[in-house]
């Protein structure tokens, strides 16, 4: 199998390298890809949409159907992870582990008679994962103070995507990574306290709904689906600014969907669908 694979890879690779002889040279301004559609976008998008960042204009306006269904793909991936992995069980049977906050000692606690939970004063004991997890004071504190700034930066990236590199996808990933960082630096329970499973799933669906709803709103106002000029009837600034505002709405939808799905997938993967412990 290894030799066969090597032969196939060498054959395909040599055919592809032979094909590159006909490719346009690297960084050629006259390459076919740069002459067909993109000059139209670069020259007209500022006049037509009032958005200086051409990437955002193409992503959220000219190619918004593509972006909408990419968002739907992300949502579908989140739902697939949930349906495949989630086990609707509160807590697996067996001993649990607690750490005494003051001394740092770890206790293993068995269930009492008839599976009753043993009461521990949770101000002094915190539950820890059954697999060994390091307890590092510095990492916990540093992450705790970093996370609000990371989230603020994520909001900035979403909101400022019209004028600088950024947008819904990037900002949503940053917001999701902040929650994942909380989960990695502390533990899954802390992250679940901040953002419940239901919140992640609802964010994921809500983002797709905002995107599709903006399109449907345009349809209801008498224009084509996702033709943001229709929003001029509701927002100030005329049809060109309405396209800019419509893009902002859509980017917010994408950001919410991406954040929710990233956190949802991570929590499912990290806890093997049990949502009790992990990482």
């Amino acid at each position: 199998m290894k030799i066969l694979g090597l032969v196939i890879v060498a054959l395909v690779g040599s055919v592809l390298i032979y094909a590159t002889v006909d490719f346009p040279p690297f960084a050629d301004p006259e390459s076919p890809a740069s002459l067909h559609v993109s000059p139209r976008y670069i020259e007209k998008s500022l006049d037509e949409t009032a958005v200086p960042n051409v990437v955002t204009a193409v992503l959220a306006d000219y190619r918004s159907f593509d972006t909408m269904f990419e968002t739907t793909v992300i949502f579908a991936a989140g739902v697939a992870c949930f349906l495949l992995l989630r086990i609707p069980r509160r807590r697996p049977p067996g001993p649990r582990h607690f750490r005494h906050r003051l001394t740092g000692l770890t206790f293993r606690v068995k269930d009492g008679e008839n599976g009753k939970e043993i009461f521990l004063p949770l101000r002094e004991f915190e539950p820890v994962d059954s697999v060994w997890t390091p307890h590092d004071f510095i990492i916990e504190k540093v992450c705790r103070y970093m996370i609000p700034f990371i989230q603020l930066f994520g909001l900035y990236v979403i909101a400022h995507g019209h004028h600088s590199p950024g947008g819904g996808f990037q900002g949503g990933v940053i917001l999701g990574a902040a929650i994942i960082l909380l989960s990695v630096s502390h533990n899954l329970r802390t992250a679940l306290k901040r953002m419940r499973e239901k919140t992640g799933a609802l964010c994921s669906a809500l983002g797709v709904f905002i995107f599709a709803g903006t399109g449907a709103l345009c349809l209801a106002l008498g224009y084509n689906y996702l033709d943001y000029r229709a929003l001029a009837a509701l927002l100030p600034g005329g049809p060109i600014m309405a396209r800019s505002h419509g893009m902002l709405l859509v980017e917010i939808g994408v950001g919410v969907a991406v954040m929710g799905t990233m956190v949802w997938i991570f929590k499912n993967l990290a806890s093997l669908g049990r949502y009790d412990e992990g990482l």
């Binding site: 793909v73 992870c81 996808f169």
Partner: peptide, 16 residues
């Protein structure tokens, strides 16, 4: 831009 995020989502499904 969209392909990167979608590849992360599909990576999640593959790992599941």
């Amino acid at each position: 831009l969209t392909a990167i995020v979608v590849s992360v989502a599909t990576l999640g499904v593959a790992l599941v």
